[in-house]
Amino acid sequence: MFEFLSVFVQYADQWGPRLAEAAVVSARISLLGFALAAVVGLVLALMQDTSSALLRGVAKGYVIFFRGVPVLAILFLIYFGLPGIGVVFDAEPAAIVGLGLAFAAQMAEVYRAGLSAIPKGQWEAARSVGFLPGQVLFLIILPQVARIVAAPVIVTFVALLKDSSLASLITVNELVLEGRALATEYFLPLHIYIWVGVMYFIIAFPLSMLAKLLSRRARLGTR
């Protein structure tokens, strides 16, 4: 056991900086992908609330498609498939777009759950005392929705962060791919992949705990 652990110490100065650099790439594609998902997801959620059957249908179809197809298949389709019809992405933008579009479907569901928890009467009441529609949305509805969706939003981000590991399979030089490079260089795959796992854990675990705390609090607030 001691021998096993001492390997980590022995190679810390060689693996540490390279995996830290790769972690920055993982964090970057996760954050940018999540930003895209948050925006597209909100549009999808609002589309499903409109009176236009066409908009509702498009949004619904989008959610069904992306909920039914693996993220990996979407990444391959964007990175390897689209060049076949003349659309070429670099690896990193392809990963961001793929993760963003895939998780937008999930974010749409999160927003919808939040929006449906606010009684319609609040809209009517706020309008009748003279609030403008935009004011109702931003001053009254969204602050309440934010409180409800905070926990599931974080949970979705953690899921996206974990799926950002799939970007290694379309040659993005993030944690897992850097881990593979190190594994072939040093022939110590067990140690290296454990280290890679720990890097994800360091980011994901505090977020998961925060989500748990927030969801407990949101539940108490509604009682």
Binding site: S165, G179, R180, L190, Y193, G197, Y200
Partner: peptide, 10 residues
């Protein structure tokens, strides 16, 4: 809190 891919590689 760790990707499945990472577990599979281990």
């Amino acid at each position: 809190n760790i990707p499945a891919l990472s577990h599979l590689f281990i």
